[in-house]
Design a binder for these strands. Structure first.
Length: 215
DNA sequence: GTTAGGATGATCT
DNA sequence: GATCATCCTAACA
């Protein structure tokens, strides 16, 4: 059973904060994707923050362009981009308007509509890999560039492509941080990746994981 | 269990 | 022409 969405004004306020506050606060909360075929609910377990115009790992680092324009707009909107020739990734714009910050949704647990998600991702082998990775997550939720700029917290919930539900945030003691995946150079220096420790849906790609000196 | 390489196209230099 | 906020498959241990 999907709980009622939190009121839209509160949702906007939620995203209108520094991205480093929003990112860990998203963990454990649920995102609902409404499609003609039904609803899919996703409990977020792994995210990455892209923090403002001076973050070398961010698409906004080299200024505004047609592609990243949504990041420079108001918070609470979806930034969807196409990459590697075949995949989409879903971000949520954070911070005040003009501050190009966002959170990349990297992984989550499908808690409702798994059958529908499986139709979008027929190569999925196990329930926990349906949204295990940013492109898998977008594919499972049937998200593509048509949703770039979509309002995550619209005035009328019936118009929502997404609804961020109140849900239960993950316990702070269960949250881990580390360098972002696939981000090199100076951008790798910041621990802007957040995940729920031990959750099986967290993507295993941790090439730049926090230290692993032990074997 | 791990790892290497290919797929495939928009975006930016 | 190079670079991607990636995934999948095949091959190997």
């Amino acid at each position: 059973m999907i709980p009622a969405p939190e009121s839209t004004p509160l949702a906007r306020v939620f995203f209108n904060r520094p991205v480093l506050e929003v990112a860990p606060d998203l963990l454990g909360r649920t995102l609902v994707r409404s499609t003609p075929g039904g609803q899919i609910a996703l409990r977020l377990t792994e995210v990455e923050a892209y923090a403002g115009p001076d973050d070398p790992g961010s698409h906004a680092y080299r200024g505004r362009s047609d592609r990243n324009a949504v990041m420079f707009g108001p918070p609470g909107y979806a930034y969807v981009y196409f990459t590697y020739g075949m995949w989409h990734c879903l971000n949520l714009v954070c911070g005040p308007e003009g501050d190009p910050s966002g959170v990349l949704l990297r992984a989550g647990e499908i808690t409702e509509g798994a059958d529908l998600a499986r139709k979008h991702r027929p190569t999925s082998r196990r329930p926990h890999d349906l949204a295990q990775g940013p492109a898998r997550l977008a594919t499972a939720l049937d998200v593509d560039r048509a949703l770039n700029g979509a309002d995550v917290c619209p005035a009328d919930p019936a118009d929502a492509f997404f609804q961020v539900l109140a849900g239960t945030p993950a316990d702070a003691s269960a949250i881990r941080t580390g360098p972002r995946t696939g981000v090199g150079g100076e951008g790798a220096a910041h621990p802007y990746r957040f995940w729920i420790d031990g959750d099986p849906t967290v993507s295993p790609y941790r090439a730049h994981a926090p230290r692993r000196r032990d074997k």
